[in-house]
């Protein structure tokens, strides 16, 4: 078996474990089996092992981090999101419902990556910079944090709509859910700011300018402004409940467009990493 076959096997093993973990989360929450939730957590965590092995193998075979191609980018984004989710749910067991909302998105993201072209691509010299590592790593952290906030906002909306279900009953009260939702956005905002800052420093190193109004650069600013506006609305006008949750989902949509969709649509310096 060649390296890629082993890597693909690890990836698919991770997907299988994530699916099983999600199914167990669903079982635990819908049938009020708290013991199953613990197993779900372990099973999802176990999925990280083959996933990490696949990413490590990829690193050693291509000689660079997961910066190029949808295959690498989506797989590593999923890895970070799952790690963040598990760390949070491990500390806050009453938040298992968020795992049930976030894990399907992670599995979908991973699936999209695995069905795309995995052909290794060499790293051009402009991408050989420590600032690229910061830029990419913090972007992934930001996406993970925004995904968690979106999960919390969906849970909040379901509850506000009066959807009954055992899995929602386990969640803390609405005020606490909202506070965490905004806190995740705070972390995401911090990570996104770092992404923009590191990218600007790197751009200056490579092209002699911090900012060039490249479409993805500009959309990252738009995303940052959207979340900034949401935080201001929250702190100035006490934006709460449904309105806050919808605002979070709208901002999350903009961030996903910026990271995953627009690189395909607009010719950009950022397009290369994803095609």
């Amino acid at each position: 078996m060649n390296n890629f076959a082993i890597e693909a096997s690890f990836h698919w093993a991770a997907v299988a474990l994530y699916i099983l973990g999600t199914a167990l989360f669903a079982y635990a929450l819908f049938f009020a089996r708290p013991g199953a939730a613990r197993w779900a957590l372990w099973l999802t965590g176990a999925g990280l092992l083959p996933h990490s092995a696949a990413l490590a193998l990829r690193y050693f075979s291509v000689g660079h981090g997961p910066y190029m191609l949808k295959y690498e980018v989506l797989s590593s984004n999923t890895w970070i999101a799952v790690v963040m989710l598990l760390l949070f749910v491990w500390r806050r067991r009453d938040w298992n419902a968020v795992a049930l909302l976030v894990m399907p998105v992670c599995i979908l993201m991973m699936g999209l990556g695995l069905f795309s072209n995995p052909e290794a691509r060499d790293l051009p010299p402009t991408l050989r910079s420590i600032w690229l590592v910061f830029h990419v790593f913090f972007n992934k952290l930001a996406v993970g944090a925004f995904l968690l906030s979106a999960g919390a906002s969906v849970a909040l909306l379901l509850r506000e709509r009066g959807v009954k279900g055992r899995f929602l009953e386990k969640l803390p009260d609405a005020e606490t859910v909202e506070s965490y939702m905004i806190r995740f956005i705070g972390f995401g905002f911090l990570f996104w700011s770092t992404t923009i800052g590191a990218g600007a420093i790197w751009a200056n190193q490579s092209w002699g300018r911090y900012w060039g109004w490249d479409p993805i650069e500009t959309w990252s600013l738009v995303t940052w402004l959207c979340y900034g506006a949401l935080l201001h609305a929250r702190f100035f006008f006490r934006l709460r409940g449904k309105a806050a949750a919808w605002g979070v989902l709208a901002c999350f949509l903009v961030s996903i467009l910026t990271v995953l969709i627009f690189p395909f649509v607009f010719p950009s310096l950022h397009s290369a990493y994803f095609q």
Binding site: T218, V222, L225
Partner: peptide, 12 residues
């Protein structure tokens, strides 16, 4: 903030 965001989106 919204106006700057909107103009940036148009510009992109």
């Amino acid at each position: 903030i919204s106006a700057i965001g909107l103009v940036c989106a148009v510009g992109a």
